[in-house]
Nucleic acid binder design. Structure first.
Lengths: 161, 161
DNA sequence: GCGGCGGTGATACACTGTAACAAAGCCGTG
DNA sequence: CACGGCTTTGTTACAGTGTATCACCGCCGC
């Protein structure tokens, strides 16, 4: 089993994320263009889930406007490569903290206080979910598991203010 | 444990849903107004997840326009009462097939072929998820579990056409 | 009657996402 | 090098999702 302990205990730094992305694209013969790099960088630097328009604004400067549609295209690419994830309950995006296989069951832990998002995975959860689906006669192609609550750090901060 | 077997094997009929809603509102001293009734009815009749604008259009007739904002308010009410659920991955709404306590872990099984949505629940999944969250030091307040795939009926239809 | 309250109507607006087409860059072949 | 095909990006327009605000109505209690 493989999981996370504390909040951002193991978040890769922005630099690591970019380096990993670049290596991965070279390996797969894909273009890690400046725009894609900037979008990934913006998502990685933010520390919390970012909306596409947030990213567009973040990348825009006087004289250089980045349109949301460009951000969406870059995000689509990055998601296909497993470099960012979409948080469906927030319409927002986060950098992928590790390299999962696409489709592997990831659990998103969304802190309602600090807005940070951790990733976890659990073979136990996947196993029990798989059995439940099988009993229901349902063949899964993709699943979303998002949990909202308080991360350890924020809970402590609340208890001892 | 409590779960569903086949596709809509136990979907309550529209009439049942409305009767249950009416009883529940009376019991809680809340108003089950015509608009709320119509919105619930529209969601229940559809057979698949409906967007708020779909519902608004469905309820509108020449000379009687129902604005989306009214639909949203009715949906908010119905969700608070646990009578409808929101499918985050689709921005759409379905009637609740049973009476869950709000916050109880429900698994949505979304058929990518017929668009139908079944509900399932599993103490096994809930238990393993709870343990995983505890190990991660995360205190959950609400969780979303949505699975996309093929329901039994659609899978059979594909295999033997 | 009168005031308060919840529900509804209506308008406006912000946010999220996609379609369609044009322009620019890359890369192979002849 | 020229050419043609491909991917990426820019631009515009638009569809879909959701919220804020204010006005109006109906009901209930005083």
């Amino acid at each position: 089993m493989h999981r996370h302990e504390g909040h951002d205990a193991c978040h890769a730094g922005t630099g690591d994320t970019l380096a990993r992305a670049e290596a991965l694209c070279r390996e797969r013969g894909l273009q890690f263009t400046p725009l894609r790099r900037e979008v990934l960088e913006a998502v990685a630097e933010a520390g919390k889930a970012q909306g596409a328009y947030d990213i567009a604004e973040r990348l825009s400067a006087p004289g250089k406007r980045v349109a949301p549609v460009s951000v969406y295209r870059a995000l689509d690419f990055l998601m296909e490569q497993g470099l960012v994830h979409r948080i469906a309950s927030r319409n927002a995006f986060i950098p992928c903290a590790h390299g999962h296989a696409p489709g592997e069951g990831v659990i998103f832990l969304i802190c309602r206080t600090c807005g940070g998002v951790d990733e976890a995975s659990s073979e136990e959860v996947e196993g029990s979910l798989g059995r439940t689906l099988e009993r229901a006669g349902f063949t899964p192609t993709h699943s979303i598991l998002e949990v909202e609550g308080d991360c350890g750090a924020c809970r402590e901060r609340k208890q001892a203010p």
